[in-house]
Write a protein that binds this DNA or RNA. Structure first.
Lengths: 215, 215
DNA sequence: CCACAACCTGACCATTCGGTCAACAAGAAA
DNA sequence: TTTCTTGTTGACCGAATGGTCAGGTTGTGG
């Protein structure tokens, strides 16, 4: 495994490898630049510099700035949906919502740029991913509301409004990415430590699960 | 009253009135444009059109785009701090935090643009209001943490981490402004009705106050 | 080796944007 | 009326940006 990786790094010739690696580097740089400067403030030149490629090369892989941006947003959306699987196959809210909070807090920690790009996109009226909101996200939301309602009917949690519970979950978990700079400033300018992240997750889970009467 | 307004509209002469009215119109337009397009995506021309003034006139009242943006952000920050007064003079968490949620939800409903500009500013690393975060916001936060800790010590609520409680409050209440478009899409494309806003406030208060063991 | 396709990139272009300025209009003070 | 300050605005400019393109280089299949 590491042998193959070594070879492919020493012999960067293979066409598919070149394309894959360059697209990866561009997307990684774009995610960071879009998150830090917004779509309007980001420049192709800056993304190119950060990816270590000439600007013209970006337009070889991604026709327009919008195309590149769309790919970044889609990439994030898929990560979100994957994490949403935590919700499924759970016998009750303690396991399901607990795991969902864990998963979303981990994403906020590991993909803060992506979360910001998503937030920015939605705040600006979702010009690029409106169809996703109306189809995939809506379907997912309705499905999860049904699951929560079932838990309520089964007496596993208090009768709260499932929709607003989801909003509270999204808001709180993503806050640690989107407002990470503010949190860091209020933490004496230092990023949250491992222990502090653990404490954050525990606090959120504790308040939410008690708030819905699951514990 | 309407007579005075009529007169002042027919006689727009007074110097201070002209300046005040034009600055107000520009700030209102700027808040909307900055919220919808971000700082980088906003253009002085668009703000000017929305304010009904020639672009050159904007630069007469606000030297640079940054100056105008800074004024917009500061304006929002003051609204936030005013609402924070709800926290004070409360005998316990039910009244204090309950009133704070009410106030912040009302702001999210009435000043969605402002909330988005603030979110965007923080997400981009707070280049303009970093000093506010380090002084005013930090002091306010520490003060409120002390209040919450006192309530905990007095047995009026469970021993939760006050800092993460504040983050949960900020995140959840502001979510209804910052992600208003997403919420509207999930609401069949229609803005929340009066009854739905009432339900949202009640749901948030219920989940939070139970989550911290205040009710 | 050859020929074709994929990949690379410096130079260039049209457009847009923030900001300037000079000339002008309108109230206020005398 | 005269004078001075404040407010108004079309025209303009330098800089930056997204995007193009022609001419190259590199890998690959035959």
């Amino acid at each position: 495994m590491s042998g193959d990786a070594q070879i492919s790094r020493l012999k960067p010739g293979r066409r598919t490898d070149i394309r894959r690696e360059n697209e990866r580097a561009i997307l990684e740089a774009a995610e960071k630049v879009f998150a830090e400067a917004g779509f309007g403030g980001a420049t192709m030149q800056l993304i190119a510099d950060m990816a270590g490629l000439p600007k013209a090369n970006l337009h070889y892989y991604f026709a327009t700035k919008e195309d590149l941006y769309r790919r970044v947003v889609q990439q994030i959306f898929e990560i979100w949906l994957d994490a949403a699987a935590s919700f499924d196959d759970a016998p009750g809210p303690v396991e399901g919502i607990g795991a969902y909070i864990d998963a979303k807090m981990d994403i906020s920690r590991r993909h803060p740029h992506g979360s910001k790009v998503w937030a920015s996109e939605v705040m600006h009226g979702a010009p690029v991913i409106q169809d996703y909101l109306e189809t995939t996200l809506r379907d997912w939301t309705e499905g999860r509301i049904a699951v929560i309602q079932r838990w309520i009917d089964e007496g596993k949690m208090r009768p709260v409004n499932p929709r607003h519970l989801l909003y509270l979950l999204w808001a709180t978990t993503q806050h640690y990415a989107d407002f990470g700079h503010q949190i860091q400033t209020l933490n004496g300018g230092r990023p949250l430590s491992e222990a502090q992240w653990k404490e954050a997750k525990a606090s959120v889970k504790d308040m939410v699960l008690r708030g819905i009467g699951a514990i």
